[in-house]
Amino acid sequence: MQDVPSQAGRVAVVTGASAGIGFATAKALAQRGCHVVLAVRDPARGADAAARIGRSTAVTRLDLAALDSIRSAAAELTDEYPRIDLLINNAGAWSAMRAETRDGFEMQLGVNHLGHFAFTGLLLGAMLGTPGSRIVTVSSVSHRAGVVDTADLPMRHNYRHAAAYSRSKLANLLFAFELHRRLTQADAATSSLAAHPGGVWTGLFRGANPALLVHTLGRLITQSPERGALAVLRAATDPAATGGQYYGPSGIGELRGAPAPVRASPQAHDRALARQLWNESERLTGVAYEPILPST
């Protein structure tokens, strides 16, 4: 964390910042002088997280599973902060059973991709005129197993939670890279980057059997949220980082290690698929990036 340069005078919005990687990211930015807005589903948990962080923080209610909440949060933020320097699209959903957002989207795609797509589009006006502003979208190594079929985004048949999650993480990268191309074409002052935390030790392993074996293996192949946040922080603050880059741990399997540029799967760089997903995302969310940001 000590490698993060001073963020004094900057404003950051971090989604899902009440726990885990989002909390670690928000805390590190605040410690370096950034004013950090914790955009969270549960304001009470957000307030507790802000109190633990201290320094210059604020809390905004944001439920990425509801477009009305996304619009309300974005309106509140753009009214309060005409200048936003960093947007960290970190929040995520995982569901073993098929579930839907309030607007009828498959839950994992709806929160992880469509919610962030809409939120980013609504905040973009407060970022485009800010030199050095960055949008960092958090993906996962599991994106490599993802398949995005724009004709079957509801995934009502043959739902598998792992496939749905991987699909949502591939969608994150398709969005981040397409956003980079559009920002570049518009000669914008804002950059779009992506990052993944590697394997992060969370409560996911607790309660599994045999407990000792799971805990031992879990500790060996994963890292803490603080370590996982390093790739996100590097994408957000490294002066040498540029739009279109993707950061993750540099160790074996990109599960652990110091943050470094890493390669995304070939599917993540499929421009035709990215444009299809972008157009469908605009249609589903009702958030259009044009004329603020022209299409490629």
Rank of each mutant, 00 (worst) to 15 (best):
131 P>F: 06
191 S>C: 10
78 T>Y: 10
275 R>P: 01
176 A>F: 04
36 V>E: 10
199 G>C: 11
189 A>D: 11
87 L>F: 12
190 T>R: 04
187 D>E: 14
141 V>H: 04
65 A>C: 02
180 H>R: 09
70 I>N: 09
77 L>N: 09
124 L>N: 10
45 R>Y: 05
286 G>T: 11
193 L>N: 01
145 A>P: 01
280 E>G: 01
159 Y>S: 07
64 L>E: 06
22 G>D: 05
246 Y>V: 00
97 M>W: 05
160 R>Y: 02
19 A>K: 14
255 L>F: 15
294 P>L: 03
294 P>E: 01
285 T>C: 00
252 I>P: 10
106 E>D: 07
17 A>G: 09
30 A>Y: 12
169 K>W: 13
192 S>Y: 07
99 A>S: 13
67 L>I: 04
153 L>T: 07
126 A>M: 07
266 P>R: 10
35 H>V: 06
188 A>W: 06
253 G>Y: 07
133 S>Q: 13
288 A>H: 15
5 P>I: 09
97 M>H: 09
148 V>P: 01
61 R>T: 15
293 L>Y: 09
30 A>L: 13
36 V>A: 11
74 A>V: 12
184 T>S: 14
238 D>K: 00
236 A>K: 00
61 R>E: 14
152 D>K: 04
80 E>P: 01
39 A>K: 08
196 H>F: 02
200 V>T: 11
14 V>F: 14
239 P>Y: 12
175 F>S: 06
162 A>V: 13
273 L>G: 01
247 Y>F: 08
150 T>G: 02
256 R>S: 09
40 V>E: 07
218 G>N: 10
209 N>G: 03
101 T>A: 03
283 R>T: 06
11 V>F: 08
210 P>E: 05
225 P>C: 08
79 D>H: 15
191 S>H: 11
122 L>I: 03
203 G>D: 09
290 E>M: 06
168 S>Y: 11
227 R>L: 14
102 R>Y: 04
288 A>Q: 15
126 A>P: 03
235 A>R: 00
118 A>G: 12
189 A>H: 13
200 V>I: 12
32 R>T: 13
203 G>T: 04
123 L>K: 13
296 T>M: 03
288 A>G: 06
30 A>S: 15
184 T>C: 04
36 V>M: 11
16 G>N: 10
158 N>T: 01
195 A>Q: 00
141 V>Q: 11
100 E>L: 11
42 D>S: 06
201 W>L: 15
122 L>H: 10
112 N>Q: 14
292 I>V: 13
30 A>C: 10
